[in-house]
Nucleic acid binder design. Structure first.
Lengths: 144, 144
DNA sequence: GGCGCATCCGGCATTATGCCGGTTGTGCCG
DNA sequence: CGGCACAACCGGCATAATGCCGGATGCGCC
């Protein structure tokens, strides 16, 4: 077994845009048999290179808002921390970019509690320098 | 037809975490028949609520870097602009949050050209106020 | 009542998948 | 050199999932 080669990169590139594509079609596009393709994808999944498959949600329901938590950290957070945050039902997306944490949260209007709980959770991180919560109504968001 | 109800929210919640789940399993979890579930998912896709399905890539190859383009815009960009940017092969993710544009790009080490081309493309947007390109090596990123 | 419509269900033909066994190429070592 | 181990590939068959119907049910409305 070796690392990620060009075929794997092609697979990742396609799956990044069409995660629900049948393995047979994926195989056809990259020029391999179905079984070989499935094998590669499985390997990528087990190796943690493919972390999972997510539906890309465009618009939100009117009955919901999106909240953005922008947090400045002293150092890059561990995967464990990010996974814990991502485990919150309200959390849509977590990204971390060199010392900055960016949460995209979906909350029911009227139940800002979920947002506050999450905010508290984030605040307990030992390396938080600054914490900003901005709430943006759906209409202001064209795409997230 | 009506807007997004609780069943749809359940569907979205599951698909957000397991986009490749078979419709049959999804149906079982939300307590509907397979055909009804498929119908709902199809409706969500056509309505643009589900924009697509993406593989969530964890680690990157050692032979690659990630580059982050942080752009400040005068106004929220149109979906067309974002889609055009997302069409670049190197682009992993595009997000836009109330006037701020955030590109996550994957580029081969040594072929910074792809990054520069993208940077130029972004610079042609008519409402760009500020453009910052930061390049972060893989080791600095625990999760994106 | 009777109509239109959204939503649901089950079934059947088609397609995709999981799971094999078998082949090929490559590096290693006696 | 011959043989071995192993990764990576292929095709095939039983099983599972999907696409695509027809038909039931509930609801608002003229």
């Amino acid at each position: 077994m070796q690392g990620t080669d060009n075929i794997d990169r092609a697979i990742l590139s396609i799956l990044t845009k069409e995660a629900r594509i049948p393995m047979k079609s994926l195989a056809g596009r990259i020029g391999l048999s179905r079984s070989a393709t499935t094998e590669r994808v499985t390997r990528l999944e087990k190796a943690g290179i493919i972390r999972g498959y997510r539906a890309d949600i465009g618009q939100l329901d009117d009955g919901q808002i999106q909240a953005f938590l922008l947090v400045t950290l002293k150092r890059t957070p561990s995967i464990g921390v990010l996974d814990r945050l991502a485990g919150f039902p309200a959390v849509r997306r977590v990204s971390s970019v060199s010392g900055q944490l960016d949460l995209v949260v979906e909350v029911e209007v009227g139940s800002i509690n979920a947002l506050n709980e999450l905010r508290d959770e984030v605040a307990t991180l030992d390396n938080v320098e600054d914490l900003t919560t901005s709430i943006v109504l759906r209409r202001d968001i064209e795409r997230v």
